[in-house]
Amino acid sequence: MNVQWKGVMPAVTTKFTKNDELDLNMFEVNIKAQLHAGVHGIVLGGTLGEASTLLDEEKRELTRFTVSLVKNKIPVLVNIAEQSTKQAIAAAQKAEADGAHGLMMLPPMRYKSGDLETMTYFKTVANSTSLPIMVYNNPVDYNVEVTLDMFEELLKCDNIQAVKESTRDISNVTRIKNRFGDRLKIMTGVDTLGLESLLMGADGWIAGLVCAFPQETVAIYELHKVGKIQEALEIYRWFLPLLELDINPKLVQNIKLAEVYTGIGTEHVRAPRLPLSGQERNHVIKIIERGLKNKPVLPDYKNL
């Protein structure tokens, strides 16, 4: 499948049972809700999520299950976040063998690589696989920035095709477009800059709260796409308090609690994470309940 780097692609949460095993039944419920809403791709194993807690075989099982579930309707991307080049190559090759259509890839984990090390890492992995790659550029959370000069070198690899732009600098979308045009596709990676990034020329949105609110997220994208900016803005303004749950150290717990309220998830997390409790939980519940109470009526965004 040729990955089209555009539209809404949820970085889906991993579903667990109360016995800390993969909950493929509830995972299927959520994926089907995403498909029904019209998302344009699925991203597995988000790094700020629970990917680091998964066993290797669990990651592969999730990949194979998702690929079989979507039936080539949309691409399935697997996140690569490893500590060594050797591990990253192995992960990329396993993802390809398991049927993934593309990769989302971070710089090396833990070790803060220099510019040359970072570029060599990406290029070496890219040359080991035929899968298209989206570079995840998030210096805020991972302390390594992939600069435009570095992308100039990385784009010598034909299969490095997109960036998940998470620098939090909205003007970086324009810088990328000015420098690379359509050669480097831009997927915004910050929920609270979703519509702003699209308006500045981003091609799509790797989203978080879409896991609980798929239709609302896709509606914003589709309305923006056809120039119905005011209608998109009205939904986005309603959505913002919920989107802010994603820019939080406990984003996984926040999103999973929201999924409970919308009927497409559970609160089960893998230790050391624990479900929200006390005042923190009550605060998030108030945001979710307020959002549901004031939920906008969506237009027929699939037929604009």
Rank of each mutant, 00 (worst) to 15 (best):
P272D: 03
K293N: 11
E289F: 01
Y261C: 05
G263Y: 10
A271G: 04
L274A: 12
L292G: 13
G291C: 05
K295V: 01
P275M: 12
N282P: 04
E280Y: 10
I287D: 07
T262A: 05
I288A: 14
H268Q: 05
P275R: 12
V297K: 13
R290H: 08
I288T: 07
L276M: 04
I287Q: 04
P296A: 11
Y261V: 03
V269I: 02
T266Q: 01
V269S: 00
P275C: 09
G291L: 04
L298N: 03
P299H: 06
I264W: 00
G263W: 07
E280I: 02
N294V: 04
R273K: 09
G291M: 10
T262H: 09
E280P: 01
L298V: 02
K293R: 14
E289Y: 05
P272S: 03
H283G: 04
I264N: 01
H268R: 05
E280C: 06
R281T: 00
L274V: 12
T262E: 06
P275N: 10
P272A: 11
T266I: 02
L298Y: 12
I285Q: 08
Q279K: 14
E289G: 10
V260A: 02
H283T: 05
P272W: 09
G265S: 12
I285D: 00
K293T: 07
A271S: 14
T266C: 07
H283D: 12
S277K: 11
K286Q: 14
H283A: 14
T262N: 10
P299Y: 12
R281Y: 04
I285L: 15
A271Y: 11
E280T: 11
V260W: 00
Y261N: 00
R290Y: 06
P296M: 04
